[in-house]
């Protein structure tokens, strides 16, 4: 059987979570690999959450928010962009391939976009194989 990656998804309550709901309501089919954690805004997502997810066995982390400019709280996602680009730079040091972490935007009406992001991400992570990095090495990273 092929490797089924476990991906943790942090989705903001206002756009992306609704987009994900819409994908379901419209009965679009997508990879069941992303397990969604709802946060109020993508701005709530701390880099620590992402690192934690890898420590706890995730193979990938997907952060989805409203499109830039559309954040329900005006500009939370701009903060996310800045935070995530810093994190992206640190990932190699932590022994995490950059393709394992993705920040993207899905609006409440973009069920199809949600599906394509999830499918694409799942494929990429599947190709990378399971994330194996013991916590020991991480400290040295």
């Amino acid at each position: 059987m092929s490797f089924e990656p476990k991906i943790v998804g942090f989705l903001c309550n206002w756009c992306s979570y609704r987009g994900a709901d819409l994908a379901g309501t419209a009965r679009m089919k997508c990879a069941p690999n992303v397990r969604i954690i709802r946060v109020m805004c993508s701005g709530r997502v701390e880099p620590a959450f992402i690192v934690k997810a890898f420590q706890l066995g995730a193979d990938g982390v997907l952060v989805l928010g409203c499109h830039p400019g559309d954040c329900h709280y005006a500009e939370g996602n701009y903060k996310t962009i800045r935070r995530m680009s810093l994190l992206q730079k640190m990932l190699p040091q932590l022994g995490i391939e950059t393709d394992r972490v993705r920040l993207d935007w899905v609006s409440a009406s973009e069920g199809d976009r949600f599906v394509s992001i999830v499918d694409d991400m799942t494929e990429k992570v599947r190709a990378l194989g399971p994330f194996t990095k013991n916590s020991d090495e991480e400290k040295h990273g």
């Binding site: 476990k6 943790v8 397990r35 969604i36 954690i37 946060v39 109020m40 805004c41 701005g43 709530r44 997502v45 701390e46 620590a48 959450f49 934690k52 997810a53 706890l56 995730a58 329900h72 709280y73 939370g76 903060k79 935070r83």
Partner: peptide, 30 residues
């Protein structure tokens, strides 16, 4: 929204219902 919580360098801000403890537990759960 939790934006300040994620940014506080002293981890001084708690987001009710979305605390570090709660989110970590949820990550562990999924």
């Amino acid at each position: 929204c939790g934006t300040c919580v994620a940014a506080c360098p002293s981890a001084a801000i708690t987001h009710r219902q979305f605390t570090m403890e709660e989110i970590t537990a949820e990550i562990e759960g999924v």
